[in-house]
Amino acid sequence: MVDILLALVQGIGVTIGVTGLAIVIGLALGAPIAALRLSSNRVLSFVAGAIVNVVRGVPAIVWLFFVFYGLGSSLVRFDPFTTAVLTLGVFAAAQFAEAYRGGLLSVPRGQTEAARVLGFGRVHVFTLVQLPQALLAAIPAGATVAIGLLKESAVVSIIGVMDITGRASAAALRSSDDILIYSLAAVLYIALSIPVALLSRGVHGVLERRVHAR
């Protein structure tokens, strides 16, 4: 059992790497997508909405095959890890965009009106008044997306990335302890997701108590 566990633990770094980088890409790319989606320009908001729905509407595994085997065979060939990060990153962007959007929509209109009649220009109304409140409101949804990505990242094993799941299926080929192996893998995923959930709840709780005490 210890040797199996050791084998799986070696995949933790890859799982965290794929998920972490995808989250970074998603957080960065999701913001402009959300901004476009909320734009008063109908064409821009339609295009952004279409991107979000197409990306989210197709399973991650299909995107992965599409990029790795589809694009990979004809256009650009990335190694499996890079393919996994880029694909999950775009997938994450669509989901974070929705979290951002929900956060921005949760800021009451009176807040922007109050800022405008105090004399703040558009940029400052956004950065000083809307954004801080929107980010706070987006924390729970964002954490759900992050934990979802952690689990979703298991699909990258299918193109040969040796994450926790990749290590588990490799180990299962060599032994008959499938139940034990995949149980250990499950425990590792849960162990990784708990800190994310706790951190999100802690940070959100502290800020939320300040901002919405009643």
């Binding site: 009451p108 009176g110 807040q111 009106e113 109050a114 800022a115 405008r116 009649v117 105090l118 004399g119 000083l128 008044v129 801080p132 409140q133 706070l136 300040r210 901002v211 919405h212």
Partner: peptide, 17 residues
């Protein structure tokens, strides 16, 4: 205009953060 005339709202609209 904002520098010369203020406004007070029904729901206060203080910035909660």
């Amino acid at each position: 205009l904002a520098r010369r005339m203020g406004m007070v709202f029904q729901h206060f609209e203080l910035f909660p953060h």
